[in-house]
Simulated scan of single mutants.
Amino acid sequence: MILVKKFSFEAAHNLTRYLGKCERLHGHTYRLVVKIEGPLNEEEMVMDFAELKKIVEELVISKLDHSYLNDMFDQPTTERVAIWIWDQLSKEMEKRGVRLHEIELWETETSGVVYRGEKV
């Protein structure tokens, strides 16, 4: 079974190795969708939504929300930020007996990435 939880955060960035309007400082309201998979536990859940929320907020949202992403990433594309989020969450999920299935990171309503942990 796959459990899904949505989050959002605000962040600014500029793409330093890009020619176009995104090379200038700008911000987004990012939408993050975290999907985990695993068997039902003794409470008939993959994981408690409150527990998942606490983990994601502590490991990801608290670090990214209202930040300047260039302070954390050399080239803060949505793709690079998604890989970082995956790295923050995947081992923590394994410790809890579930697997991070997929994340979606949307920088606008119509533009985002899906990442499943593959090497890029």
Rank of each mutant, 00 (worst) to 15 (best):
V56Y: 04
E42R: 06
G27Q: 04
E51H: 04
E10Q: 14
M47D: 00
V56K: 03
K54M: 11
S8A: 14
S62T: 09
R31T: 14
T16D: 13
A12C: 12
R24K: 15
R31K: 14
E37F: 06
E23K: 13
V4E: 13
K5T: 09
F9P: 03
I36C: 05
K35T: 12
E58H: 05
H13C: 09
L40K: 06
K5W: 04
E37R: 07
R17E: 15
A50I: 07
A12V: 10
L52I: 04
G20F: 08
G38R: 02
A50P: 03
L25Q: 12
S62V: 09
I61G: 02
D48A: 04
E10K: 12
R24T: 15
A50T: 08
K6I: 15
Y30E: 04
H13V: 08
L3P: 06
K53V: 06
A50H: 05
S62H: 03
H28Q: 07
M47R: 01
I61M: 04
L59G: 00
L40H: 07
K54V: 11
K63G: 07
A12T: 09
V46F: 02
L32T: 01
E37T: 10
N14W: 10
K21Y: 11
A12G: 12
G38C: 00
E51N: 04
K6P: 12
E43G: 08
I2M: 13
I55D: 00
A12N: 09
E51T: 04
A50W: 01
K6C: 14
E42A: 09
V4W: 10
K6E: 15
L15V: 11
T16S: 14
Y18S: 11
L15A: 06
L52G: 01
L64K: 05
L40I: 08
